[in-house]
């Protein structure tokens, strides 16, 4: 009799066990998976509570955020993704630096003006590049570069010997 009761109790316990067989993934496990997905976006955050992934922080672009949301939804156990994240405002790239051409007569005149007080320095255009030769002191070289750099003629070869 006792054995029968025990057997039935066991059977019942087992059946109860089998009914709730659907394994519930813990928030902790979901959090680990979710964090891994969002790791590629350092400014974004995700917190999983009761199977819902709460997305926060900032993404570099809408495309990246959409991709993260899609991946999060694919995690087994995640019921939904609550999107509270923003897209970072990316500054537009700076406009290219406008350079002048070494052979331009106006540029040539300005270079001449800049070198007027330094007779030991010569200038010529070699392969389209302004090339300075001769000799100059450190102080003179500084003044020359100050004036020539302001012209923004691209690559300048400061080939003079600086004493």
């Amino acid at each position: 009799m006792k054995k029968t009761i025990a057997m039935s109790a066991l059977a019942l316990a087992v059946s109860f066990g089998s009914i709730s067989c659907k394994k519930k993934v813990s928030d902790a496990d979901l959090q680990t998976s979710a964090t891994t997905i969002v790791a590629a976006n350092p400014s974004a955050t995700v917190e999983v509570k009761e199977g819902v992934a709460h997305l926060g922080g900032t993404f570099a672009s809408q495309a990246e955020k959409d991709a993260a949301i899609k991946s999060l939804k694919e995690i087994k156990g995640v019921k939904d993704v609550h999107d509270m994240a923003t897209i970072a405002e990316v500054a537009p790239p700076p406009p290219p630096v406008e350079t002048t051409v070494a052979v331009d007569p106006m540029v040539q005149q300005k270079v001449k003006d800049a070198l007027k007080d330094f007779p030991s320095v010569n200038v010529e255009v070699v392969n389209g590049e302004l090339t300075l030769t001769g000799t100059a002191s450190s102080a003179q070289a500084r003044k020359i570069k100050e004036s020539v750099d302001a012209l923004k003629v691209g690559k300048v070869n400061y080939n003079y010997t600086v004493k």
Binding site: S138, A141, R142, I144, K145, D149, K152, Y158, V162
Partner: peptide
């Protein structure tokens, strides 16, 4: 310009343009 001079006292660098 003093900062540039500390790196290059000949002020002949072609890879920097200071305006």
């Amino acid at each position: 310009w003093n900062a540039l001079g500390a790196i290059d006292s000949t002020y002949s660098a072609s890879d920097i343009n200071i305006d």
